[in-house]
Design a protein around this nucleic acid. Structure first.
Length: 559
RNA sequence: GCGCCCGUAGCUCAGCGGAUUAGAGCGUUGGCCUCCGGCGCCAAAGGUCACAGGUUCGAACCCUGUCGGGCGUACCA
């Protein structure tokens, strides 16, 4: 979204163009105006569609409007820096002088490790909630996608100036947990040679057998019957042990949460009852067929749903609403829930409830993602925790490494299905784009290592002060223009929930660098040139490191 | 049946609040190692942007419909 980007080269041009347009006093600014880098030299360095979009509102033919804009621009910007031209149906194409492009590189070098950060979020207290898988089994590859997505989104919002907390919401009581406890107890009894049928809806995975062995060896007495005492014990054992596993699995992926929020606290602190009182007060709840219902049909996708069952127990939805009220009470100004596509109806209902309670519609947004299928031997694998058919996230991480898992999970846009190709990730992990990006970084480090012995006089402590005017090759200027786009990528990726833009961007930088590296030698007898090129490499390395950092991937100095 | 998402090169995917000749990686073919790490570079071949209409001076992108695929459509969580 060029209209909101930071004050770098591309946005500088946009700002000037908009000023020029305002000066014409013709018509309000249309939406969708952009200044974008071009991919073809004859169209200049950047190009804008303003005249095409505004022509209708101004009652001026696009080409004529473009002419006027170009004339107005000439008065604003030194023609030595930027030359604007009309092209095609009415594009305004910008030709930027090498000097002005070099200024952009100076901006990168000046910002250093802070390059790309912004204050857009004004430190608003924000929460990203994700994974939130119930502690009934190990995390699957499917959870892995959400884990990476949520983690990277949180990083992105943090980059653009929000104060972000990562939260994991877990259900530690109720039906599912009872079934889990019973399933575990049955596996436990099997160790004594007994055999029981796992109940309908129970958990059949092998992992409970391992767990049962651990539980048995830690218990002093034998639990022969699944009575209330056994139920409480096996419930606690199951939840604690599986939660610990989940935390470990997430840690192996480099993910850490700030808070683990237990659903039980909402019940204990009567928050669920309080939420229902509020809903009734706002006319959003009504009684029917012995149950209490939420009125949600006025919200797109929403439908009236049960809040309190006729037996008096609250539904998941009811508790979910109470949970979101609690989030606001904890002081969050904005909450982002990352969830799978199977929750869309639930989401609409929660939104409807919050709207009825007078919440700002901006308070809650959902980052929805589609599912992951695992592909192995050309076969798509189906997964189900309850049936015990899945590949665990941990197995995958152990197999291909955290960097690769993170890269594959994040490089597809969230709303599209993801086929995780196990064979590719396992056997050809060197042929994947993640390696390509990391190799670019390694190569840059190698050049600096080499410079230490062969061109030590070209090295400086502060790259900020280097004379970069020797950088006039087309590849060098193109690289700088790419680096210039980084702040904009971070902002768009965050605000549009499109983190896949980051690996896309990094890949483009890596590609441009590899091409440059092959065509131009960095280290040479020309000390001024060597120093300028090292400054450029320093900036490229910086941006690659920043990109990989946001993705939670390593930027290796050697591979 | 209804709702949401997806359908772009052999494969995996970008691009999609319209705009100048549709992009990348892998794979295929052909070049490039006296030179900073060849885990690299350059080039070629490969696409009726699922299909059919519509809006527009202009559509991969917007609208309608059709056909594929996924997910929902619980007093489950």
């Amino acid at each position: 979204m060029a209209t909101t980007s930071n004050a770098y080269l591309g946005s500088f041009l946009l700002a000037e163009l908009l000023e020029a347009y305002a000066g014409l006093r013709r018509a309000p600014l249309p939406s969708g105006v952009e200044v974008q880098p071009t991919d073809r030299p004859e169209f200049g360095d950047y190009s804008s569609n303003l005249a095409l979009l505004a022509a209708k509102g101004c009652g001026t033919p696009p080409r004529k409007l473009a002419e006027e804009l170009v004339q107005a621009l000439a008065k604003r910007v030194p023609p030595d820096d930027v030359r604007a031209e009309v092209a095609g149906p009415g594009f305004v194409n910008f030709f930027v002088s090498p000097h002005r492009v070099q200024e952009a590189l100076r901006g990168v070098l000046r910002s250093g490790d802070a390059y790309g950060r912004s204050e857009r979020g004004a430190h608003r207290k924000t929460q990203v909630e994700f994974v939130s898988s119930n502690p009934t089994g190990p995390l699957t590859v499917g959870h892995g996608r959400q884990a990476v997505l949520g983690d990277v989104l949180a990083s992105l919002f943090s980059e653009i100036g929000y104060d972000v907390g990562r939260e994991y919401y877990f259900n530690d009581e109720g039906n599912q947990i009872d079934l889990l406890a019973e399933s575990l107890w049955i596996r436990y009894r099997e160790l004594f040679g007994e055999s029981h049928d796992i109940p309908e809806g129970g958990y059949r995975g092998e992992y409970l057998k391992d767990l049962a062995r651990d539980v048995r060896s830690s218990l002093r007495e034998e639990y022969r019957a699944f009575d209330d005492r056994a139920k409480a014990l096996f419930r606690r054992e199951a939840v604690e042990r599986i939660s610990a596993t989940i935390r470990n699995d997430l840690a192996a992926l480099g993910i850490r949460f700030d808070t683990f929020f237990s659903e039980a606290t909402l019940h204990r602190e009567r928050k669920v009852d309080a939420a229902l009182v509020e809903l009734r007060k706002h006319g959003a709840a009504y009684d029917k067929d012995g149950a209490v219902w939420l009125r949600a049909d006025h919200v797109p996708g929403g439908k009236d749903s049960v809040l309190i069952r006729s037996d008096g127990r609250p539904t998941y939805l009811m508790v979910d609403i109470a949970y979101h009220i609690d989030k606001r009470e904890r002081g969050f100004a904005r909450v982002i829930d990352v969830q799978g596509a199977d929750h869309v109806v639930e989401q609409a209902c929660v939104k409807a409830a919050l709207a009825a309670l007078g919440f700002d519609p901006e308070f809650l947004s959902y980052g929805v993602h589609q599912f992951v299928s695992l592909k192995e031997g050309g076969e798509i694998q189906r997964m189900s925790t309850r049936a015990g058919r899945f590949v665990t996230l941990r197995d995958l991480v152990d197999e291909v490494g955290a960097d690769m898992v993170r890269y594959f999970m994040i490089s597809r846009k969230p709303e599209a299905h993801l086929d995780f190709d196990l064979d590719l990730a396992k056997s050809q992990s060197l042929d994947n784009p993640a390696t390509y990006i990391q190799y670019a970084h390694t190569r840059i480090c190698a050049v600096f290592r080499k410079a230490e012995t062969e061109n030590p006089r070209s090295l400086v402590a502060d790259w900020n002060d280097v004379d970069i005017s020797p950088l006039v090759e087309r590849e060098e200027l193109d690289l700088i223009k790419k680096l210039d786009g980084f702040p904009d990528v971070l902002e768009t990726a965050a605000l549009s929930f499109a983190p896949h833009l980051v690996p896309e961007f990094a890949l483009g930088v890596a590609r441009a660098f590899h091409g440059y590296y092959d065509r131009h030698r960095v280290l040479s007898d020309d000390e001024a040139m060597t120093r300028a090129r090292l400054a450029l490499l320093h900036a490229i390395g910086l941006v690659l490191r920043r990109s990989l950092g946001v993705l939670g991937m390593t930027a290796p100095e050697a591979m």
